[in-house]
Nucleic acid binder design. Structure first.
Lengths: 190, 190
DNA sequence: GTCTATATGTAGATAGAC
DNA sequence: GTCTATCTACATATAGAC
């Protein structure tokens, strides 16, 4: 622990994270991860008992990474609307990937919703994190329906990623983000 | 053609359509379709050359079915806003399925966006159909940016399905539909 | 047209040498 | 901790009898 083993473990998680995004969970094989990392297939079972365990580790990693991103948005301003704008900017920050593969969180949730229910719950952890963070911001804006607003904002962003990837339309992301940001700024602060 | 063979072909397409929705394209095997129809696996190759061909037939079928649904919305009223409301009602009409498996069109596009590009194009045919139909309605409302409105409406509806299935939240569908319909009614008719 | 048997490849997972 | 060889299951696809 803490030595070479942990390093390899992290390499596996990083490669799997990327592959789950670009190919999907089920379409990513151990061979794919092996090719990407140079680590032999058999070794994976030293670090993880099953493929599902790798998924768990990937989601854990994403929760951590997105937690840091949300934290960065908090640091950028004390004004909730500024923080929300910062969050919404992720749409253009990652537009190159979104236009090809959609949202890494949304597409994983959509894929795993079609499986046994436990995988689905795991995959939604990042959405839950974002949702509660958004609730905090809208609550700070004295919105009485902060959770509704949070869901609305996530839904709007998800809708943009789905249609942008379906039609490969980068410009749609830009236009939609502008409209979303108008909406954000219009949110009341009593 | 037209006899027993065509009947079996249709049975396969219908079963595949349902399974591609509830399990995903790649997670649906010939065995699954065989179990659902009672038709032996080997027979599939009499009707289709490859699994991709089955997908093509499923998408063709969906285009036809949704074409009829859009036509039904046109028949319901000559007023474009009424037609748009009719279309938006699909969200609650199919909410039982949406809350579990998301949108059949959106999730298929999201899944196949991660594959070779030709499969993705095929899967988006239904979106293209809806888009052009929506453009007609917004054009009839004298919207100068009818295509933008069409994309916005599809994106909003897709976002709702993604979040509703992620959180298994049926109530979110109802609330979002109400807000969407307020938006529809507010669209200008010069 | 219908069905069984089978070919071929690859998936996730395991055993055991080093 | 690392790696190779291998197991078992199941995927798509094919061959050929009926």
């Amino acid at each position: 622990m803490g030595s070479k083993g942990e390093n390899n473990r992290q390499l596996i998680v990083e490669a799997a994270d990327q592959l789950f995004y670009t190919r999907g969970y089920h379409q990513t094989s151990f061979r794919d991860i092996s090719d990407a990392t140079g680590i032999p297939r058999g070794n994976f079972y030293y670090y993880f008992k099953t493929k599902d365990d790798i998924l768990n580790a990937v989601v854990e990693s994403r929760v951590e990474v997105w937690g840091e991103m949300l934290h960065a948005c908090e640091e950028e301003s004390t004004e909730p609307r500024q923080r929300l704008l910062c969050f919404s900017n992720m749409l253009t920050k990652f537009e190159d990937n979104i236009v090809v593969n959609g949202c890494p969180i949304g597409t994983l949730c959509s894929e795993l919703a079609k499986d046994e229910r436990n995988l689905q719950e795991v995959s939604c952890a990042v959405f839950s994190l974002m949702r509660s963070w958004l609730v905090e911001q809208f609550t700070a804006l004295n919105c009485p329906d902060a959770d509704d607003k949070a869901m609305d904002m996530l839904a709007r962003m998800q809708g943009v990623t789905v249609m942008a990837s379906a039609f490969g339309d980068r410009e749609f992301i830009h236009r939609s983000l502008s409209e979303l940001q108008v909406w954000i700024v219009s949110q009341t602060l009593s």
